[in-house]
Design a protein around this nucleic acid. Structure first.
Length: 460
RNA sequence: GGCUCGGUGGCAGAGUGGUGAUGUAGGGGCCUGCAAAGCCUUGCACAGCGGUUCGAUUCCGCUCCGAGCCUCCA
């Protein structure tokens, strides 16, 4: 049993073979911090977090790097709009991003490099590219010359001629070739910038990831990942930058696996500012528990598009509640193993087939009612150990389900009403009993009469 | 126009050359004073048309429909 992943570079599912099995290295292109993260950003973070968790079940040492882009025209625009300093904006939204992702059970990357800390290295890379005649300076800009890199388009499987034919890009007059892209551009005052051999300016977007991934992981590393939309142009341009110097001619000399997650659509449409259907993680976190959102993000295979609706969040909420109910039922059961069954592990390792894993967890849950003690141990172990890899089922079942929460302000009143209702039931005054139940219901308290007495929980 | 990926039951979503995915919703039943929770049970689902095959939702071809990318994008 070993890990297989869809490799964008080959277009196929392949067995994962690390460059160095004693140290697996992965780089994910992270967010540009100028606004709250949306659920699409979260999908990338959750999927890569999952991938790292899975890698850690297979390899002793895994280093996960994911950057913060803290210099970009969008940040400059945000600064103009709000009047806040750029550094204020970027540190604010970096913190919010990390907190929002943490609520979804996303662990911090081992290294979270920032673009502005790597300007020197970017300038060095540009110098090399110019020396090797892969880039040229014109009117204060430095551009990468795409025809100078023969493997351009190999990742996105794009043919240059077709690309130009269908192109809707405005071709700047200083470009030698329409496909050439910016490595460095001038920053006229008051725009932020750095001193460089080509004047005061700032880097192009793609440069930072070439520089930071190499610096933090060394080349070649194992997995370079991001959202599917990054395949072109971002990753293609990174490859062009990194692979046109020295001996790194092929994307595999950069990273052996190129891993991309699909988009999140909202109510059937692409999220976009103009439609106004952006779903911010920050807002969703106020309404739903992090594990529910995480499970919903994992409810479709990572490379499929995911249609984000209220309905599927609710469906997944109910599903996870039920799994917690099973765990509650098994709370007395002792487990010894910490590894999921082979069948479950197989689905996880099969290109992170989370929907199948979730189906198998449900099958486990279905067995509980007729399970032997031995089987119960197995079920609990599978739920908890697979849950740990998926990043779900990590809460206390009783408090997740809202049972008998002692810290609720009106606990005394609730219990007084329950006692009163039970008295009414004993004297067969069912009208009164049902009346009291409705009063509790209005207070958001659901009651359940069990053979051990009446228990209550918060209904929401 | 070019490239890529899809169309599975009310909804979500895996998968497979020949048995049931799974969840959620709905139906029926058990339990309960009634509920809740739980349990049992229930669904002529694989876009259409051809082809290959003993057999196709699964393989091949065509048609129709949808999505993404084509230099802002997770």
């Amino acid at each position: 049993m070993s890990l297989q992943l869809q490799n964008t570079l080959s277009g196929k599912k392949e067995f994962f073979k690390p460059v160095n099995p004693s140290h697996v290295r992965i780089y994910a292109c992270g967010p540009t911090v100028y606004n709250f993260a949306h659920i699409g950003n979260a999908r990338m973070a959750v999927v890569n977090d999952l991938l790292v968790r899975v890698l850690k079940t297979q390899y002793k040492k895994v280093t996960y790097v994911s950057n913060i882009t803290d210099i970009d025209d969008k940040i400059i625009d945000a600064s103009k709009e709000t009047g806040e300093d750029i550094s204020v904006i970027t540190s604010k939204y970096t913190e919010i991003y990390n907190n929002d992702m943490s609520a979804l059970g996303v662990n911090l990357p081992d290294i979270q490099p920032r673009a502005t800390d790597h300007i020197k290295e970017m300038i060095e890379l540009i110098k090399k590219l110019i020396e090797e005649e892969k880039a040229y300076e014109k009117e204060g800009h430095v551009l990468f010359h795409v025809p100078a890199f023969e493997n351009y388009g190999i990742l996105s499987k794009r043919n240059r001629d077709e690309q130009i034919a269908g192109s809707r890009v405005e071709v700047a007059p200083f470009k030698k070739d329409p496909a050439d892209f910016i490595l460095w551009k001038p920053s006229p005052s008051p725009l932020p910038g750095w001193v460089s051999p080509w004047g005061f300016g700032r880097p192009g977007w793609h440069l930072e990831c070439s520089v930071m991934s190499e610096k933090s992981l060394g080349l070649p590393f194992d997995i370079h990942s991001g959202g599917i939309d990054l395949v072109f142009p971002h990753h293609e341009n990174e490859i062009a930058q990194t692979c046109s110097i020295s001996e790194n001619k092929h994307p595999e000399d950069f990273a052996t696996f190129w891993f991309h997650n699909g988009f999140v659509n909202v109510e059937g449409e692409k999220m976009s500012k103009s439609i106004g259907n952006i779903r911010l993680v920050h807002e969703l976190n106020k309404k739903y528990k992090g594990e529910v959102l995480r499970l919903t993000l994992l409810s479709a295979h990572y490379k499929q598009p995911l249609n984000w609706t209220e309905d599927i969040i609710e469906q997944n909420n109910k599903m996870i509640d039920r799994l917690y109910r099973v765990l509650l039922e098994l709370s007395e059961v002792e487990i010894d193993s910490k590894i999921p069954s082979e069948s479950i592990m197989e689905s996880i390792l099969d290109d992170l087939n989370t929907p199948k894993v979730i189906a198998k967890l449900n099958e486990e849950a279905n067995d509980v009612s007729s399970a032997s003690d031995e089987r119960k141990r197995e079920i609990k172990n599978n739920l908890l150990s697979a849950g740990k890899i998926l990043g779900i089922l990590e809460n206390d079942p009783s408090s997740w389900l809202g049972y008998n929460q002692k810290n609720t302000e009106n606990t005394e009143e609730i219990e007084r009403l329950i006692n009163k209702r039970n008295e009414a039931r004993r004297s067969k005054n069912f009208n009164l009993a049902d009346g009291i139940r409705n009063i509790l219901k209005d207070k958001g308290i659901e009651i359940e009469d069990t053979d051990k007495g009446t228990i209550w929980r918060k209904s929401k």
